[in-house]
Simulated scan of single mutants.
Amino acid sequence: MATNRSRRLRKKLCVDEFQELGFELNLGFKEDLSDDAIDAFLDAFLIEAMDANGLDYVGGEDYGLVCLEKRGSVSEEQRTVVEAWLKGRSELTSVDVSPLMDAWHPETPIKPVA
């Protein structure tokens, strides 16, 4: 792919200085948890962990991507807050939170901040 892109195109593609970071979640629920309990957990997750921290979640009940609710990148502090919230929940048996990664192009390494 061409590397000599205009600033406008780099912004549209979310590459180079416009790279946006997010992280993946992998959740394991207790075997005996009812559908209503999972729904209640997801409602609390979206309100307390996502909305309260300016984040958005894309995915299913056990796997997804967390990104900023507006243009930009998730901070390491936001990632840590979400991880702590999830690890404090009794409904889960396992929580796997990935390091920050490129939200649009996961195979692309994170660009260092200049």
Rank of each mutant, 00 (worst) to 15 (best):
R7N: 12
E24W: 05
V113G: 05
S90D: 15
D56G: 09
A2T: 00
D35F: 03
L27C: 00
D51V: 08
R71N: 15
E69S: 12
L92V: 07
E91F: 02
K12D: 12
R89I: 04
D16L: 10
P109E: 13
D51H: 14
L13G: 01
D35E: 09
V81N: 04
V113P: 04
Q78K: 03
R71E: 15
K70M: 11
H105W: 14
A40H: 07
S73H: 08
R8Q: 14
E31C: 13
P112W: 09
E107K: 13
D102M: 09
I38D: 00
I110E: 06
C67G: 10
R89K: 15
V81T: 08
N26W: 07
R89D: 05
Y63E: 11
F41E: 00
T3A: 00
P106L: 10
L65V: 10
S6I: 03
D102C: 15
E17W: 05
S75L: 08
G28L: 09
L100T: 03
G28I: 06
E20M: 10
E31T: 15
L92D: 03
T3W: 01
S75K: 06
I110Q: 11
S73G: 09
P109D: 12
Q78F: 00
R71Y: 15
E48V: 06
R79G: 01
R7M: 10
P106C: 11
L42E: 08
S6P: 07
T93G: 07
R5N: 02
K87I: 08
A84W: 02
D96G: 09
L33M: 10
Q19I: 07
V58A: 13
G88D: 07
P109I: 11
Y63W: 09
A44D: 12
W104M: 11
G59R: 05
Q78S: 02
K11C: 12
R71K: 15
